[in-house]
Amino acid sequence: MKLTDKPLKIKQQSVIPGFGITMGFSLLYLSLMVFIPVSMVFFNSSKMGWKQFWDIVSSERVLASLKVSFTTSFLAAAVNVVFGVLFAWVLVRYSFPGRKIIDGLIDLPFALPTAVAGISLTTLYAENGWIGKLLVPLGIKVSYTPLGIIIALIFISFPFVVRTVQPVLESMDIEVEEAAICLGASRFQTFYKIIIPTLLPAIITGFALAFARSLGEYGSVVFISGNMPMFTEITPLLISTKLEQYDYAGATAIAAVMMVISFTMLLFINIIQWWAGDRDKPN
């Protein structure tokens, strides 16, 4: 018998006490709030046969709805990245009257019930609405098209990028930009070679949050999209339609597919995040 054998130790020595209780509680909480509900989806859909599952999820209507959901969410998040960074920039770098008020207004899409947002956006963008009226002569239809979905999603996920980028921009050292200028970089070069890479981890986080939020959004979209199968029907709506038809198996099957795709994409974003965050850590 070797005397040097030690029992397997998960816990690492740390001066901060309470590892056991905090870790245990976190895992319990995560299980109750996230893991168990999520695994029920897979559990329920596993009750049906593989063939039946495949028939449901590969039906044209489901595939079309997945395409609508992922494309519109992606585009909405992408638009929010551009304008979110711009907003954060304006709020951090310039001081102007009413800055605090605008800063407060940014969180409004979070506070508003999404159905209210959906109804007011539909009224605005309908063919006889204030903005819709102006767009009709240009041949642009917003309400009851994928464009309408994108606008609703932009609205509800707007605060994420602003709120993730803002603190990073605030803590950014102005000397770094001055150093770039001294080395002969133009303002534009300083922006895309120095500022954007510094903000990148925060931008990616903001994008991921906005994207995830948009994928799950339901309340505001149902009003503006018109919910036409194969055209403007989003996956969350299709799921609830199935539920209303007491097709629980069908609903969970679609939910399972959506969850796998979402998880894969978020994991991918996280990998980019680790890669981008790595260089700031000393080793």
């Binding site: 050292d173 001055e178 150093a179 770039a180 080395l183 970089a185 133009s186 070679k193 510094t198 260089r279």
Partner: peptide, 25 residues
Amino acid sequence: GFVFQHYALFKHMTVFENIAFGLKV
């Protein structure tokens, strides 16, 4: 050439890229 008290290095670039920056821009 300006040298700052707190270095003001570009954190997302390697040492090599930092030095090359002024020539690359």
